[in-house]
Computed example of a mutant assay.
Amino acid sequence: MRVLIPMVSGGAGPDGVGRHAINVVRCLLRLDEIKAVDLVVGRWQLSYVESLLGATDPRLKLLVAETGRSSPARNLWYYNRLPGLAKERRSSLIHVTYPVPLHQRGLPCPVVVTLHDLYPYDVAANFGYPKVLINRLILEQCLSAADAIACVSDSTLERLMIRRPALRGKSLRVYNCVEPHTACSLDVQESKPCRPFILAVSQHRHNKNLPLTLAVFHRLLRADPSLMLVLVGRQGPETSALKASLESSGLASSVIMLESISEDNLQWYYRNARCLLATSINEGFGLPVAEAMLAGCPVACSDIAAFREIGDGYCSFVSLGAAQEDGFVAAFHQMMKQPRPVPATMPQLSSGSIAGRYAQLYRGLLDATAQGVETALQFSRENGGAA
């Protein structure tokens, strides 16, 4: 089986989509039946992808897409160039790692798309107008054209079924792969916090609810002036407002903002933070929450479906609403009274488990191409249930 994985996105550093793509590659390379994996990146992604991949398997080929970094340029590449690349690489199957425009008639093999969330509908403010309308069109076109939709959580699958119940026959859940990380040293290039710190790992987007993160930290800082906040995440639509808020509130000197850090450094922050603060109003999965749990970092997070799905029994959940600041402050103080938690075990997110699920899905699609996608997904479910 030869799998083509295009992960050409706008980010020049590690983000959720990029890390998902890398983890899919690692899962597939565990399988003997995978004869080749072609990973396609933008030139601006090449450096960080190479650093994340580390030692490479001879079956893995890293390809550079000749396209610009802008959204229109990337969308045109997916629609016009991806079919030809799949033919050139003799791909058995294409796995796109987020919704993109697909030229369905031109594609020479089945296509799986990973669906992380339904933000174009659920969090329009992430995009603004008219960009959100374009993103909705791309999402709808991709979901219709794909042969299978792999949702990263039950909550994402349930949202999809509410909005598009007709896609039930080709949709299933395959969790993100998240595993414990062994190394946790801090590179000398990274500035080490000189005071106890709270960690937030969030892109600067509306759904991350960063104003609440800052408000909670401000409250905690008044009670303990030694605290710092380390905010890790790509800049986005909320960056300007975030920086303005830091200046006007006087918090700037107590907040470290990091846009792109190595995997080892991120793990160091998880293992040394007082807690992870995750105040999102909507998520498709909640990768930082899962990573913090595996690192034994206390977690205070909003009580939303995606966080409940992976963090129930470990995290301190806070209901969003009128008393949300008080709730997060109380959760923090309560966690500080308790011993640091033992790192969680999450076998359902392991590479072995996820590799098996993808193998079932891919095999089913290839075996049942002539019979349709629904038959392929039925094959997957009969050989292990919901992934």
Rank of each mutant, 00 (worst) to 15 (best):
R30Q: 10
E259Y: 11
D326K: 04
Y129H: 13
N272D: 06
D303K: 09
A306R: 03
A21M: 14
V111E: 11
V3T: 05
E382G: 01
V25I: 15
E140C: 10
S171Q: 12
L242A: 12
L220F: 11
P6T: 12
L102V: 10
L62Y: 03
I256T: 11
L276M: 07
S240A: 15
K170L: 07
V232S: 02
I198L: 10
A305Q: 06
V152E: 00
L287F: 06
I310E: 00
G106V: 13
S254M: 08
N383D: 06
L377D: 03
E325A: 06
S249W: 08
A292W: 00
M346F: 06
D303R: 00
L229D: 01
G128C: 14
G10C: 04
D367G: 13
A73R: 11
I281N: 05
E238K: 14
G385A: 09
A306E: 10
Q189C: 08
D264A: 13
R136S: 12
S70K: 11
E66M: 01
I261K: 03
L377K: 07
S91A: 14
R381P: 02
R159E: 08
G236C: 08
G54K: 08
P341W: 13
L365P: 12
H116A: 14
N176P: 05
I34A: 04
A330M: 02
G327H: 08
A323D: 04
I198F: 09
S153R: 02
S171C: 12
V232W: 01
P339S: 07
T213Y: 02
Q203I: 13
Q324P: 00
K131S: 09
G11F: 09
A252H: 11
N80H: 13
R159H: 08
L137A: 01
A36L: 10
C27E: 08
E88K: 13
N272Q: 00
A368T: 10
I5W: 12
K61G: 03
N23F: 05
E33D: 02
S202E: 09
